[in-house]
Nucleic acid binder design. Structure first.
Lengths: 146, 146
DNA sequence: CTTAACCCTGAAGTCAACTTCAGGCCGTAC
DNA sequence: GTACGGCCTGAAGTTGACTTCAGGGTTAAG
């Protein structure tokens, strides 16, 4: 099977070579096979993993949290119940983030559309004002990716 | 009007006193009035602003980005067109984050529900596998906060 | 066969976002 | 009036996530 050098996979995933070595040290990536000369050899699917890591970072997850996400699986040492509990905890964390982002998005939309060209009343912060509008009682988030 | 000391507002917003002084230095917060003795006096609505800062940080925004968000407004120096353009740029950035979080959420849901109790086939990463399932063509996100 | 581009390791340096520290002033409770 | 918690400043230290550096092998091109 075809393998990639660290430089090739770094380019493919859009991250630096040094970051990859760092992720290996921090155990977000398994230690890869090495060539005779000691060069790392990666399977192509490691690109996905690197992509996930970068995107999750952008979403405010720390490397430790990302490690946890990537490790969430049933194994001889971890029961199904535990995995489900952990996954559900992550789900509500992720939902909270989505709700918050939806608020910010709505606030930005208010700002973009209600923009009249005149000056705003001094001292107000449009984003915060717009977010205030939304924080009524019993909000419900519906979100679908189809 | 009632004002809050730095300690009081820190407690109310759930951030540290030092962080607040840091935000002031970094110009995420305006310089507050001072008492005769030089103590900072905050208006209660600064709590909102601090809350926004914390939540935005959790969503992967840097302090610089948060500063930009908070400053997005029409002023004598900034035209409506500029504000709208900037807001729209932020909107699509936020939408991308929501899409990505929705994927992660769906992946976690697959993981939580498909959890059978047996061992998974060795070497696979359930989260990445579940995310692969979703990355079909022409995905559309619908997201509503009601 | 040599030279440039790539790879290796380990250690040190950097940057953002704070936190801790040193040294000192307020304010109120005993 | 003094003790104690809260506030002040400026500087130094910390943590996470890398990046840069020093010193040295490797491999493909010419």
């Amino acid at each position: 099977m075809k393998t990639l050098s660290i430089g090739e996979i770094a380019k493919a995933a859009g991250v630096s070579v040094e970051a990859i070595r760092y992720y290996e040290k921090e155990r977000l990536l398994d230690k890869p096979r090495r060539t005779e000369a000691g060069y790392r050899q990666y399977a192509p699917d490691v690109v996905r993993r690197l992509g996930f890591i970068s995107r999750a970072k952008e979403l405010g997850f720390s490397l430790d949290e990302i490690k946890e996400l990537l490790r969430l699986r049933v194994s001889p040492n971890v029961s199904c119940r535990d995995v489900r509990a952990k996954a559900e905890a992550k789900i509500s964390l992720v939902e909270d983030k989505i709700v918050e982002l939806s608020r910010i998005k709505a606030a930005l939309e208010v700002l973009a559309t209600s923009c009249t060209g005149g000056d705003a009343p001094t001292g107000s912060c449009p984003i915060l004002d717009a977010i205030d509008l939304q924080t009524g009682p019993a909000e419900v988030l519906t979100c679908k990716l189809s």
